[in-house]
């Protein structure tokens, strides 16, 4: 009388937000979160990559770290954009990727979407907060 135990993990899809709030080179947060995003992309979850506060500086155009002897990782966000495009094109998988920036943080830093390496949705604080409230998991600071 043994019943087969079936673990149905197919189609488990949660809403994950990666919340970037720190500038890129002063601390390790930005790079760690970016690596986390790229690794977890394999799990095909609904993914929101979000930037607020000094996190907006992570995706500022024109970064050059040569003299610092550190890796300029801003080109790596291109892979995030690629994952988003793949998610949109892949008809077999119902998965949503979004890249969002909180408007107030961006404007407070004198930046506009043209200053950013990514094509982003700019959301006012209230919408940004509402999106946070919809998440199952928020990773980052």
């Amino acid at each position: 009388m043994s019943e087969e135990v079936v673990f149905d993990t197919e189609g488990v899809r949660k809403n994950f937000m990666f919340l970037n709030r720190k500038a890129p080179y002063g601390t390790i947060y930005a790079l760690e979160i970016l690596e986390m995003i790229l690794i977890s992309a394999a799990f095909e979850q609904n993914t929101t990559v979000a930037f607020m506060d000094d996190g907006v500086y992570q995706i500022k155009k024109g970064q050059n770290t040569k003299a610092l002897g550190m890796k300029n990782f801003s080109p790596m966000y291109g892979v995030v954009e690629m994952e988003k495009e793949d998610a949109e094109e892949d008809e077999d998988v119902e998965m949503v990727w979004r890249i969002v920036v909180e408007q107030e943080s961006m404007e407070a830093r004198g930046l506009s979407p043209e200053d950013l390496v990514l094509d982003v949705e700019v959301l006012p604080a209230a919408e940004f907060g509402a999106l946070m409230a919809q998440q199952d998991v928020i990773l980052g600071g």
Partner: peptide, 15 residues
């Protein structure tokens, strides 16, 4: 730090 300010700015009513 800006932590409080950022939190209060985005946290929806009822938080």
């Amino acid at each position: 730090r800006l932590a409080m300010e950022s939190c209060l700015r985005v946290a929806p009513k009822g938080s």
